[in-house]
Computed example of a mutant assay.
Amino acid sequence: MKARIKWVQDATFLGESGSGHAVVMDGPPDHGGRNLGVRPMEMLLLGMGGCTAFDVVSILRKSRQSVSDCVAEIEAERAASDPKIFTAIHVHFIVTGRQLSEKHVARAIQLSAEKYCSASIMLARSAEITHDYEIRGT
């Protein structure tokens, strides 16, 4: 896997992925940015959220669950001093579908957290990661 980060100006950077996609990252105005894109640490949370949500949907589909939507709402706490690493991350899943099995949803989240989501497993080395979920019917 490869990535390229190009400084644009001030605190603005363009990130280009090895798969050919681009994203703008920028800092807040008090750090010389113009608020034109997400912060780099926000990108880490987005990446983790995308990774685990992808896993949960995939596992539920393989379990023949009729899932129609999956939202991962993430809240994180960071250390007060440098390096301001994540110290706690909570993921709240909202899984929607027809006659979803609570057992299957719980197991999908557990499998993602413990076996499949590389981003979560990596971040869990420095942050306490917790999960909960709610199931909504269609």
Rank of each mutant, 00 (worst) to 15 (best):
M48T: 10
M48K: 11
G49S: 03
G50S: 03
G50T: 13
C51Q: 02
C51L: 03
T52Q: 15
T52H: 03
A53R: 13
A53S: 08
A53D: 10
D55Q: 10
D55R: 11
V56M: 08
V56D: 07
V56K: 00
V56A: 08
V56E: 04
V57Q: 11
S58V: 04
S58W: 00
I59Q: 01
I59R: 02
L60W: 06
R61Y: 12
R61P: 06
R61A: 11
K62I: 06
R64Q: 14
R64Y: 02
S66M: 09
S66A: 08
S66Y: 03
S66V: 10
V67C: 15
S68V: 15
D69A: 15
C70I: 06
C70L: 08
V71N: 07
A72C: 12
A72D: 14
E73S: 07
E73I: 03
E73G: 03
I74C: 09
E75V: 11
E75A: 03
E75K: 09
E75Y: 00
E75S: 12
E75P: 01
A76Y: 01
A76F: 07
A76I: 02
A76Q: 12
A76T: 14
E77I: 05
R78D: 03
R78Q: 05
R78E: 07
A79M: 07
A79Y: 02
A79L: 04
A80Y: 02
A80L: 10
S81Q: 06
S81A: 12
D82R: 08
D82M: 06
D82G: 00
D82H: 09
P83F: 02
P83M: 13
P83C: 07
P83N: 08
K84T: 10
K84P: 06
I85L: 06
I85W: 13
I85K: 15
I85N: 09
F86M: 04
F86Y: 12
A88P: 00
A88N: 01
I89P: 05
I89S: 06
I89D: 00
I89L: 05
I89M: 04
H90I: 05
H90P: 04
H90A: 14
H90Y: 08
V91H: 03
V91C: 12
V91Y: 04
V91P: 01
H92M: 12
F93I: 07
F93M: 00
I94D: 01
V95H: 01
G97M: 06
Q99G: 13
Q99C: 13
L100H: 08
S101A: 13
S101N: 10
E102G: 15
E102S: 14
K103M: 10
H104F: 12
H104C: 15
V105S: 14
V105L: 11
V105G: 09
V105W: 04
A106V: 14
A106I: 09
A106C: 09
R107N: 14
R107P: 04
R107F: 12
A108N: 02
A108Q: 08
I109V: 10
I109Y: 03
L111V: 04
S112N: 04
S112I: 07
A113D: 12
A113M: 00
A113E: 13
E114H: 02
E114I: 06
E114C: 01
E114V: 07
K115Q: 03
Y116G: 12
Y116V: 09
Y116F: 14
C117A: 15
C117D: 13
